[in-house]
Simulated assay, not measured.
Amino acid sequence: MGNCAIAGRFYLTIGGKQISARGAFDIQPLNYEREGEANQDGTIFVSEKAVPAEASGSLSYSRDLNLETLYQICGVPATIELVNGDTFVFPAAMVVGTPKLNTEKGEISDFKIISQTCRRVLGA
């Protein structure tokens, strides 16, 4: 078997409720980031700092899901399941940023969740 891309559909579930996502979601599962810089003598060093794991994208607007409801999401499990079966689990997700309702597209854009950790579960 060769390598195959993991593109296509995915499913977003927050607090046990499946939500209809639009387009692609960007997932940043690491909870740290590194930066490299140089000393005055040209030697380099790397510093690392903690950051939240996050996922961001757009959701389909529905009467069941509005901006106030999104902001009430705090500390609940969120999962993003790819069609190949791989799943990214955010165990205590919180909504951050400023989600916006685009009435022309019927979508909530700039939707972002963060969590202290993210765990990747490989599909079968």
Rank of each mutant, 00 (worst) to 15 (best):
E37W: 08
F25W: 13
D64M: 02
P91R: 01
G57V: 02
V83Y: 10
N84P: 14
F111I: 11
T98I: 05
M1V: 11
L59M: 00
N102K: 05
I80E: 04
I6R: 07
C74N: 15
I14K: 02
A92H: 13
R22S: 03
N84F: 03
I27C: 03
D64F: 03
A50F: 10
V46W: 11
A93F: 02
R63I: 03
T98A: 13
A53N: 06
E48D: 10
G16Q: 10
A124E: 12
L12H: 01
I27G: 06
R34E: 10
G15P: 04
N102Y: 04
T69G: 15
R9D: 12
C74W: 04
E54Y: 02
G15L: 10
S62P: 07
Y61G: 01
A124Q: 08
V46P: 01
L67P: 02
C118S: 05
L122P: 06
E37H: 14
F111C: 12
R34P: 00
R34G: 12
T13E: 09
K100I: 13
A92E: 15
V76S: 03
G8N: 02
F10C: 11
G85F: 06
K17D: 09
T69F: 11
D64S: 08
I114G: 05
A92Q: 15
G2F: 13
V51M: 12
S56P: 00
V89I: 15
T103F: 05
E48H: 02
N84C: 14
D86G: 07
G123D: 09
Q28M: 05
Y11G: 08
G57F: 00
G2W: 07
E37G: 15
V121L: 14
I19M: 13
L12Q: 02
F45Y: 15
V89G: 00
Q28T: 10
I113G: 01
G23W: 04
V51F: 11
E33C: 13
R34F: 03
E48G: 13
D41F: 08
C4G: 05
L70S: 13
E35C: 07
V89W: 05
I14A: 08
A24S: 13
L82V: 13
T13P: 03
G75M: 02
V46G: 00
V51I: 15
S56V: 01
A78H: 03
M94S: 11
L30Y: 11
T43M: 08
L65P: 06
K100T: 10
G36D: 09
V89A: 07
N102V: 11
A7D: 12
S20L: 09
T13C: 06
A53Y: 03
S62C: 07
Y61L: 09
T79M: 04
K112P: 07
R120Q: 08
G42V: 05
A38N: 09
A124S: 12
N66G: 10
T69P: 06
P99W: 09
G97W: 08
Q18W: 05
Y71R: 15
I14Q: 06
Y11V: 14
P52G: 04
R22L: 00
P77Q: 09
A93L: 02
A24C: 08
R9Q: 11
A50G: 04
A21H: 00
F88T: 04
A124G: 15
T79H: 00
P99H: 04
L12I: 12
K112C: 13
T69V: 14
I14R: 00
E33H: 05
P52E: 09
G97K: 06
Q116F: 04
